[in-house]
Write a protein that binds this DNA or RNA. Sequence first.
DNA 1: CTGAAAGCGCTAACAG
DNA 2: CTGTTAGCGCTTTCAG
Lengths: 338, 338
Amino acid sequence: MTSKRPLTLRDVSEASGVSEMTVSRVLRNRGDVSTSTREKVLAAAKELGYVPNKIAGSLASQRVNLVAVIIPSMSNMVFPEVMMGISEVLDQTDLQPVVGITHYKPGKEEQVLFEMLSWRPSGVIIAGLEHSDASRAMMKASGIPIVEIMDVDGTPVDSCVGISHRRAGRMMAEAIAKEGYKRIGFLGTKMPMDHRARKRFEGFTETLAKHGIEIADQEFYDGGSALAKGREMTEAILSRTPDLDFLYYSNDMIGAGGLLHLREKGVDVPSDVGLAGFNGVELLQGLPSKLATMDACRLEIGRKAAEIIAARYSAEAPQDPQIIELEPIISAGDTLHR
Amino acid sequence: MTSKRPLTLRDVSEASGVSEMTVSRVLRNRGDVSTSTREKVLAAAKELGYVPNKIAGSLASQRVNLVAVIIPSMSNMVFPEVMMGISEVLDQTDLQPVVGITHYKPGKEEQVLFEMLSWRPSGVIIAGLEHSDASRAMMKASGIPIVEIMDVDGTPVDSCVGISHRRAGRMMAEAIAKEGYKRIGFLGTKMPMDHRARKRFEGFTETLAKHGIEIADQEFYDGGSALAKGREMTEAILSRTPDLDFLYYSNDMIGAGGLLHLREKGVDVPSDVGLAGFNGVELLQGLPSKLATMDACRLEIGRKAAEIIAARYSAEAPQDPQIIELEPIISAGDTLHR
DNA sequence: CTGAAAGCGCTAACAG
DNA sequence: CTGTTAGCGCTTTCAG
């Protein structure tokens, strides 16, 4: 049963008594083939258990139904949701996503990109606008559609879909200032390569400054369970700077940890201390109270990016680059309005 | 800068004045090449921004550095962790994982498998032991190493790495019975295709029966935020059958929802009601109290599976199938021992 | 150490 | 509607 040599079109051709070319046409639903030969071929292919060789097919046709998706991580809930958006759209085409993970390292990104491009995919969806010169050069030279996602604060190589994280930071700062909070702490990840968190932080401080407010204290972490880290960091920052009245977290998981911690301590949220996170992760629905957060439009980003690639894939003529900025929405939950 | 036609070996050959064959050797570090020509080639390739065409390379060499990984979902935390184990091992080889998602549907699995096999990967890692006849036939006929993961209760096509979910269910039942719990409820997903949850349930009821205990009530859900669903289901099952003294959840997320709910209600856990989940998700570290659970050895499963594929990839001779059963470990947390 | 020739398995482009 | 002829871009194999 376990054949040594995989079957080829020729095997199907011989088994069905139809030329290789016609077999190929049947198997791809291309061109007109009489019903009788079509059936003969299909029967033979099924009987033999023939699986086409896309390597050969792609080489001959100079078309590859693969879309490279390059993202920094799969372990927080953000990129899986982007992936869902991408799959949702690509599932209606014959395109297939292929995922590469960079762990937020530019070197790894370069490597993954090179590897991916060597398969000559029909498009690239890649997180972020910050890439090494080599990476940008590769993308430009590839001649295929490139969609940079998540962020629009910068200059894309080609197309781009995302939100403005700088603006997201500004919006949250505005909302916080409006509630009258004055002593604000920032808690985030110790990741110099997380440009989007950095941009949010920049927008955030910028707008606070306009209201005459300066960040009173900061705390960073890396690794470990985000929920537990959120607790620890919250405890640490408040014992160091007890008069803080608002904590802005760079993601919802650490924010949720902080929220749980404060509730246990009996701190009145949001009257004594307000809280906000970022991402709008559904995962947390069901916690005792709802953290204020901001939806990053992840699903929609995935969808739009995939649509751009799909459109170019089926288009005859090359299409123009697109820049799509989505609107993040604040969800106040129970921890912002006092 | 954006060339229409991608570069070929020939371009590098011409730019460097070295034969295509030798260029190929340099770029793959194969065979002996003099340092001077090597440098010439490397310089030319870099200068041009040449990216090799793996499609052509794979066709010619009949070797593909891809490993197909076929899993049901990416949205709960279990498969991402398996993926980490796989990557960890493959990162030390030149093999690359390519992921396909089946959404727990046999039809989709068949489709994804077919698609993957058409790229002639060097191995397949696939979740579960239950597959359609067509899927099993394809895997057998492929002639490449197949590793079925997560579960060992059944007959693998080739190799297999996992835990016995039946035994996991039995172990948990044993632990619960030993604590003297008698009125036991089961809460899980409404997924007929989740064979592993089913096997745990079977082992669970079987062992309870030996202790003269029968499941007193059950509750199922699908979709939505697991944490929130866990709360709802817990409320529902306890209002229907108030004398339950133990709740066994088919995953940690719904268990955590239940735990939060009961704490808020002021129910004494684990004295009045004991709880246990399944999976050992790290995500939940940081909740007010720690749910009893059982580690599913996800990281290790990923590692071992990748090792089997990698070993066969580099081996000259074909290797024997392996069956590896890992040991799940109960972690009692705060919700089992009263 | 380097090159020339012959495909890998399939499909585009033409003929019938 | 069906078949024939050339490659796709690379690597294997075999000569220098």
